[in-house]
Each structure stands twice: as structure tokens, then as C-alpha cells.
């Protein structure tokens, strides 16, 4: 297991984030720094990662655990390189999200919450992401993929595979 240690660049970013808050309020930096950590250390937060963040911000580890477990965007176990987070709330449902979820399941051969054997894809269902007018939709990394159709899902999967092969 690689050592949990931010790069110099990330450490500077942490300093910049802490400077946004009044003296002594660096706990406010916790959520932004957890985002940075999740990005830097494999897309999820291990106990080691959370302990590292606690030490960095001079917090008790429990203060980090309680936050990490509260927010849905923090992954507490490993996930695939590409995580399909498909919205299933009312407005997406009336626009066909159930069919999209079924299609992805069939296409990738996994259920909701599972990861493909090659570690490439994770399928997750999520609640409203604020893209109701462009439904059905999913979050993929930093961006939204909207107006999903089976054909579009195929394209996205192909695009991810191509990217993975290039790396």
C-alpha cells in the first residue's frame, strides 16, 4: 500500500483552503480537503487517508470519520475507475431512469453498488442531482451526462474503455 502523503502542490492547496477561514477555524477545511484526498488516493477514503487528513488539520480522527460517513460523495470502500452515478428520483424516474439503470446493469453485468471484475466500472444509484430538466442523467467524475439513452450509454462506456486503454 502506497504511503498516504499529499504532493507539494496539494499541500499548498490545503494551505490556501485553510486561509479562507478565520484563525483557528481550520476544521472548516475538512470537507474540501477530504475531496482533495479522495481524488489523490484512489477515489475513496481509507482509514489511513482519514487519519492523515486528521493529522493535517489537527483534528481528532473521529471528527474526520463522522464527517466522511455523513456525506454521500465520500466513498468508504474502493470503487471502479469510472463510477456511473445514475439519478433515480421522481423527475428522472418519470423520464425513464429505471430503464437506463436496467440497461447499464445488463450491459456491464453488474448490479447496483457493484464493480466490474476488471475494476473499471461501478454502478451506483443516487438521489436528485439537480439536472431534472435534462433527465435521465448520471454523474461521471466531475461532470454530468444528461439526456441518456441506451445508445448514449454505449458511447460513454466505449469512451471510458478507450481512455482506460490509453492510460
Amino acid at each position: 500500500m502506497a504511503v498516504v502523503q499529499f504532493s507539494e502542490e496539494k499541500l499548498n492547496k490545503v494551505k490556501e483552503i485553510i486561509a479562507r477561514y478565520p484563525q483557528g477555524k481550520q476544521k472548516s477545511a475538512l470537507i474540501p480537503v477530504l475531496h482533495l484526498a479522495q481524488e489523490a488516493f484512489g477515489g475513496w477514503l481509507s482509514a489511513e487517508t482519514m487519519d492523515y487528513v486528521a493529522a493535517l488539520l489537527q483534528l481528532e480522527p473521529i471528527e474526520v470519520y463522522e464527517v466522511a460517513t455523513f456525506y454521500s460523495m465520500f466513498n468508504l470502500k474502493p470503487v471502479g475507475t469510472y463510477m456511473f452515478e445514475v439519478c433515480q428520483t421522481g423527475p428522472c424516474m418519470v423520464s425513464g431512469s429505471d430503464q437506463i439503470i436496467d440497461y447499464i446493469k445488463g450491459k456491464l453485468g453488474i448490479g447496483v453498488g457493484e464493480t466490474t471484475a476488471d475494476g473499471l466500472f461501478t454502478l451506483k444509484t443516487v438521489e436528485c442531482l439537480g439536472a431534472c430538466g435534462y433527465a435521465p442523467m448520471m454523474q461521471l467524475g466531475k461532470h454530468y451526462r444528461e439526456h441518456l439513452t441506451p445508445a448514449k450509454v454505449d458511447e460513454i462506456i466505449a469512451e471510458c474503455r478507450a481512455k482506460a486503454n490509453a492510460n
Binding site: 479562507r20 472548516s28 470537507i31 474540501p32 477530504l34 475531496h35 455523513f70 456525506y71 454521500s72 460523495m73 465520500f74 443516487v126 438521489e127 436528485c128
Partner: peptide, 11 residues
């Protein structure tokens, strides 16, 4: 000063 703070998924 204006700062942007990202949440992490919580209605």
C-alpha cells in the same frame, strides 16, 4: 472576500 465551499452530497 468571497470564497467557494463545496459540499459533499447532503440534501
Amino acid at each position: 472576500e468571497i470564497y467557494v465551499q463545496r459540499g459533499a452530497g447532503a440534501y
